[in-house]
């Protein structure tokens, strides 16, 4: 599996070159959000708002009203927690084209509870006019820019930074409202988003080696939710439905899938894996994923419980599982 180092840094610079309306607003987390070189490349289009997120939301709104496309770069928690009223009233209500690039989604950071965005998808899903995207690998970090830029209204992005796996081919970019079918099988239907997808890909490979074939779908558009692949796997898939997300199990992907199933009267059980209505703490990503049951092993164990089997898959097997890159339509429906 290819590992790409900080793909957003140069990609965003190149992407912005012919888009003079694109501005970056930062609240003192410029290098932490991988836009330090962007600032140095386009100093006239970079706005330092200081550690003042409430004002930054209003400034972004005003700039958007003047025809600019502000791309707010900060940690996700500082987008939807502290300045939520400003986000809702100054930006979302008027449907302004502000792009919120939220770093450190879920429990990927040792920064602890103050830096871990565990209920952001829930809150943004409940915000009218908001489009929500989540990146799961380097290809999606690179291609989310075009997806967000084309939306007529505000867009919230769960962004990844640093060293990222390339799970999806570079010629299969993120597309608004199009999930990726990564694996097909009749034992269970698994839907994942963000970094949970890599975990589920490991689980899927190990389960297949043990003779359990699951269907696995990667979701990158949280809102609006639903597309042909989601419809197909939920309506016609077999076995239990499981969701795995780097987020609270309340209000995120698991809730969206549950709502989809109940709205349509689909008679399938939905098992939601993620943070079980709890805050977390500061520790390594691997440690937290294991502690809170968000890793490949947690998914395997949940499937074992649902199918009432014991497969004896150990962590070494999961770590060694061969994954990616996997195409959107690697297999036909």
């Amino acid at each position: 599996m290819e590992i790409v180092t900080r793909p957003h840094v140069q990609n965003f610079i190149d992407w912005s070159a012919d888009k003079p309306e694109v501005l970056v607003l930062s609240a003192d987390l410029t290098n932490s959000c991988e836009v330090g070189r962007w600032r140095d490349t386009y100093p006239d289009r970079f706005i330092s708002a200081g550690m003042a997120e409430q004002n930054m939301m209003g400034v972004a709104a005003g700039l958007a009203r003047e025809g600019f496309q502000p791309w707010i770069h900060t940690f996700a928690v500082f987008i939807y927690r502290r300045p939520y009223d400003q986000l809702a009233m100054s930006i979302a209500y008027p449907n302004l084209p502000v792009r919120f690039v939220g770093f450190l989604p879920g429990i990927v950071t040792p920064g602890g509870v103050t830096h871990q965005a565990i209920e952001d998808v829930a809150i943004m899903r409940a915000t009218p006019n908001m489009t929500i995207l989540e990146t799961g690998d380097a290809t999606e970090v690179e291609s989310v820019l075009d997806v967000a830029a084309a939306v007529d209204g505000p867009v919230y992005i769960r962004m990844l930074r640093g060293a990222l796996p390339r799970l999806f081919p570079t010629d299969e970019p993120m597309v608004l409202g199009r999930s990726r079918l990564l694996r097909e099988g009749a034992a269970a239907t698994v839907l994942t988003a963000g970094i949970a997808t890599e975990e589920a890909m490991r689980a899927g490979a190990a389960l297949a080696d043990a003779g359990i074939e699951i269907t696995h779908v990667h979701v990158s558009t949280h809102k609006p939710f639903g597309d042909e692949i989601i419809e197909e796997v939920l309506q016609r898939g077999q076995g239990p439905v499981l969701t795995l997300e780097n987020h609270s199990i309340i209000g995120g992907l698991g809730s969206a899938v549950s709502e989809y199933v109940t709205d349509r009267g689909i008679g399938r059980k939905v098992v939601r894996l993620g943070l079980k209505d709890t805050y977390a703490h500061g520790a390594s990503k691997a440690h937290l994923l294991r502690e809170y049951g968000l890793d490949a092993a947690a998914l395997v164990h949940a499937i074992e419980r649902e199918l009432e089997v014991e497969l004896g898959i150990d962590e070494a097997t999961l770590d060694a599982a061969e994954i990616g890159p996997v195409g959107v339509n690697a297999e036909s429906l």
Partner: peptide, 9 residues
């Protein structure tokens, strides 16, 4: 804040 953004734009 919104007016500041408008003035800046």
């Amino acid at each position: 804040s919104q007016a500041a953004g408008i003035a800046m734009g």
